[in-house]
Design a protein around this nucleic acid. Structure first.
Lengths: 268, 268
DNA sequence: CCGACTTTGTGCGTACGTTCACAAAGGCGT
DNA sequence: ACGCCTTTGTGAACGTACGCACAAAGTCGG
């Protein structure tokens, strides 16, 4: 029923192409790296894409395609040399140099992160711990003394920190983030339950326990959800019919609204 | 440059369509929910897709499409009623019921998670803490007594736990996971740096600090990477040329190998 | 030195996700 | 009552990701 023909849509991007590795691939490289380290420790010299894929929990075609983005390492009929591949991936990920990391917010989580050995092991060095609470400042955690948040700018610059871990409460998170960025930090790993806004060129990754749990709850409900067939779910399934049109949608909304009215205690 | 023009590609079947909400959408719903809660607390009654999208850090078209998967809530010309939308999303995510959660492995991380208030707030109740260390068992953390890992099966069943948080070291993770699943757990939030293998129908989500940092390091390197132009990077860029063929790839591998040989201290 | 076998690297079709742009829908002022 | 203005919901284009399947490339036994 589409009457509008829109044909001369011009993509303004000519395509600078060839620039980089797909984000999805980058996200998997650490996985491969870990599997390779495990193999290396067991003295394995070479590994096939099939084996490595199994160890990393992906399928082998995907692994091969991922690795092909780094270059043509690997020998047909044999596989990949473990040590060599470790080096190539490490290099691509930027792990052949050391990164100074600062952890801001030394609550329960910050403390746990400071103790976590996985950091130091591969290219990351905890260069500073920062907190605002007077009771925490001065404490020594994992061999590092917690410094006051007021010294943030000085510490970041002195230590050459470019990656920061934000483990403060939600309240001060944006403010602290702004100060970090102003002081020279260009990558932030954010544990605070807020959406950070940062200048272009600054990378933020978010880890949110609450969100992860909610996603699990969704699937959990799906599993046991076949039993509960309420008005709303019914309505949604009517929507799913192919011949749906605007009238249906309107009615659906109306019925759903009724269902909602029938319900009282809305969790605030 | 695409030379193959593929015009009359017929999608043979749209599929059984209408079955479910896209995974990407599900992952964003908690984000919207959080933004909505914040708005509700400030007493906001209705919100436009533009405003809500800004609060959640996504673009408005995406938000509208996401919400459209739940049904046709929202009024044209006005926006969405905050309270109502909160209810709809909560319901879709399965947060209108309470989920019993068990945390296994009460190290620094497990402790931090147990203290984290974000759990209890919305539909999740920490029903049990479990650990293997005699020194930890019996401790009371956030009002909950740590129970011995031997009682895992009993505790899971007694409390009706279906979602477990795995915060053990890598070593015992798979074993513990197997026991959890055998005891009835069907969703696992895994903090251990291992790839868990589980039976079909069990959902696993992974949170890995080390991986997140490595991804950041990759981008960090990219930013400052313009300066370092070594043989390998050069080779990779030759690869990026359109007219690349097998010969190029082979040479690239060869040269890269030389570069690697020149390097000695491979980080193990 | 050759032929069989193994495994990589990738072209291709499909599915999924994102973004644009706009018609439809509804409120609101006059 | 009507037309203007705002905002939703969505069709369609575009881009990314995935996985199959296979030719190319290399090893290894004889």
């Amino acid at each position: 029923m589409s009457r509008t023909q829109r044909s001369q849509l011009r993509p303004p991007r000519p395509g600078i192409r060839g620039r980089g590795i797909p984000e999805a691939t980058v996200a998997r490289l650490p996985l491969y790296l870990r599997a390779l380290h495990a193999l290396a420790e067991r003295g394995v010299a070479t590994v096939s894409s099939e084996e490595l894929a199994a160890a990393a929990g992906v399928n082998s075609a995907k692994l091969r395609k991922d690795l092909s983005h780094l270059g043509s390492y690997g020998t047909r009929g044999v596989g990949y040399e473990v040590q060599y591949l470790v080096y190539q991936i490490s290099r691509e990920l930027g792990l052949t140099q050391d990164w100074a990391v600062a952890i801001v917010g030394i609550g329960n989580l910050g403390r746990a992160l400071a103790h976590y050995g996985g950091f130091a092991s591969r290219g990351f060095r905890i260069a500073a711990l920062l907190d605002a609470a007077p009771g925490v400042v001065g404490q020594t955690i994992a061999g590092i003394t917690v410094e006051p948040i007021d010294d943030l700018e000085r510490v970041i610059k002195e230590q050459g920190v470019s990656i920061a871990v934000l483990a403060t409460p939600a309240g001060p998170a944006q403010l602290v983030c702004d100060r970090l960025v102003a002081a020279g930090v260009t990558s932030v790993l954010n544990f605070a339950p807020v959406v950070l806004s940062v200048a272009e060129g600054v990378h933020v990754r978010k880890v949110d326990l609450s969100i992860e749990l909610q996603i699990l709850a969704f699937h959990e409900q799906r599993k046991s959800g076949g039993t509960v067939m309420d008005a709303e779910r019914l309505v949604r399934e009517l929507d799913a019919v192919d011949a749906v049109d605007a009238v249906d949608a309107t009615e659906a909304a109306g019925e759903a609204a009724e269902a909602a009215e029938a319900m009282e205690g809305m969790r605030q």
